[in-house]
Design a protein around this nucleic acid. Structure first.
Lengths: 209, 209, 209, 209
DNA sequence: AATGAATGAGGTTTCATTCAT
DNA sequence: CATGAATGAAACCTCATTCAT
């Protein structure tokens, strides 16, 4: 994949029939599975087509290129990472809110772990994927920053802290935790570590005596 | 690159003459530059040879394959990351020690940033590189854990904290900070952020009132 | 070609369309011609493809490797050598039967002479081809042994002779005759020598006063 | 190896010192071993040099090319095949003489079996080797023809037989026997089969009853 | 639309031979 | 003469993309 900017002028027409929509969806789903198994470079169109029960040529009826379908899968992942982390919580206790947010992020990451890893691979040489990665991160960090500023305003968090940097750094801590722990540890181990994350986070911004 | 374990049975001979040593070093150096520019998959032997002022065949005088030279470069990076982070500091103040350690890691990362990124790419499908990455991380995290335990023993850090998990998580925070900031920010911005990292770290383990 | 055992897990798909079948057959035919001209080692995929009017890649649509197509050609030759020598003769005179069998073998060899020679070359380092060569020989020798035993049972051939060894040795005589004479002599010379072969064979097993 | 005619204008000088002669002999010996192990095409100059304890460059001090050294080895084999089969026997009994000659050929073949097989491989594309093979065969067949004519003159063998063709055909029987049996059977089995060869040969030319 | 065959640029690797030291 | 590094022409194989049916 060469460095590119998103190109919306898709030549491959959107399917008009129900059957076409199903086939298209099958290809996207198969592509995601193949990318997860093989990474981007080693994924072959032939494998995607076979896995989708489609022919070689059918792939190109729906997608212009390998890049294009990869971007569609990346977009799906990005959307889901957004979606999941969006819903707020009803609680009032700030530490509990932080823990819920952290847990949500880790859970969303777990559902998309392989693709997140492949996106990290591809970001190295593809601008679009890099931008998507950045978006996911930015959304997460921005929400964290807003939360910290709110806690500073209410006098619960240390007002001397730079909220943007702290949110960036602490968000990175969660990201890295997910990257490292999700593929290697059991759900129970991860669950047990989340309170440690929360505690560090809370102390880090001066919450709690 | 297919998943592999380190293989010491190098078929390509070590150079016996001074001239050979120079050419070999030139190839390693050129290879690193090419990997940094292009990543692993897109790096071409032809480019490495040309950049080293060597012929196509000369490459294969010293290295069996693209995999082999990549591992040599990875080994070099790993060694340097170890080397740098090893030397202790003379100070006694724990916060200052943490800051020095963090700054050292970030500086070492900065010197190897592109290769660290390529290694992240390749770790996805190559066991050797994955193992090297793991080694770097483990070394860093272990040192941190020892430091935390020491501070707990001296009563400076909160003894209720699980030192291993905290070291893992806080180490990840530094790693991710380096990954994200080094390629995108100026040295000044990074320098300015390090105290934030240090502060969060220190508070996170219960240092300071 | 490295030593191998036959591998039935062909990855290259069998053609499903008529067009595909034609192209595949053209490639097999071209391959045989190229192997006959150049032997195995010097045969180049590019030449096979060009001769078949196909592109480089088309070759790999149907065959995994040079080894695989060589085996297919070898299989064809083997089949034809079997086929030809199978049909019995109607005559009752044992000497006449021997002469017919010898002539048939030599004729079959003549039709496949170049490939038989290439197979001899390749047998030196490839197990599959060696096995095919062995099969051809075994089939021929076994039939001869049965014939000799029949003649011994009917009292026409010397019963003291070891039929298996005699069949092996006399079969080898025919094989070697074909190897040496077919490429170097005219059909007329060969035709004229066949009765000598027959006479030696017949006398050798004690037929005729 | 491309088709060539023997070229006596060797550029590589004959060694003048004793040490040079020894090294040259070591290279020839190593080359033979490598050709026997690997055949012609797969034999590498590097392996020959290493096996001879010589450097890469030394090889080219003594030999112009891979072809040249192969021809030297082939010449050695040819000489030895000649040498061995030359010495006559003292006996008078014609059948015994035939048996001795056959046994001698098989024994000489056994000593050179691997190289004879490699020569068969190379004969397919190299004229010089083909000529050597032909020489070996011709010498053997000619001697046989002379023997048959002698027996015809003395009234022991059937005078109606064409001595040249019979010698060719029966010689081929021995050759093929050696090719097939030597690599696959034990010396005892071979020894046991030689009388069958002799018997067929003797009967074939009308000797005995 | 669907199918699957056809294309060919692009990359890796080998190794006989030459050449600088 | 000895050494071993340097050269580069081949040759193989892959696979995204195009195209004929």
């Amino acid at each position: 994949m060469t460095a590119t900017t998103p190109d919306q002028s898709a030549d491959a027409a959107a399917p008009t029939t129900e059957r076409g929509r199903r086939k298209r969806a099958a290809i996207v789903s198969a592509a995601r599975a193949v990318f997860e198994d093989a990474g981007f470079k080693d994924a072959r169109i032939a494998d995607i087509a076979k896995r989708a029960g489609a022919s070689y040529g059918s792939f190109y009826t729906y997608f212009e290129s390998k890049d294009e379908i990869f971007r569609e899968v990346v977009q799906d992942v990005t959307d889901e990472m957004f979606e999941t982390s969006r819903s707020g919580s009803g609680t009032i206790d700030p530490v509990e809110r932080i823990e819920i947010a952290n847990r949500k992020y880790v859970e969303a990451y777990a559902r998309n772990a392989r693709m997140m890893s492949v996106m990290a691979e591809v970001s190295a040489y593809d601008d679009f994927t890099g931008a998507m990665n950045y978006e996911i991160r930015k959304r997460f960090v921005d929400r964290n920053a807003a939360g910290i500023r709110r806690l500073q305003a209410s006098g619960e968090a240390d007002p001397k802290i730079d909220a943007e940097i702290a949110a960036d750094v602490l968000g990175g801590m969660i990201e890295r935790f997910a990257q490292v722990w999700v593929p290697r540890r059991t759900p129970e181990e991860i669950e047990a570590a989340v309170p440690v994350l929360t505690s560090i986070w809370a102390r880090g911004i001066g919450l709690q005596g």
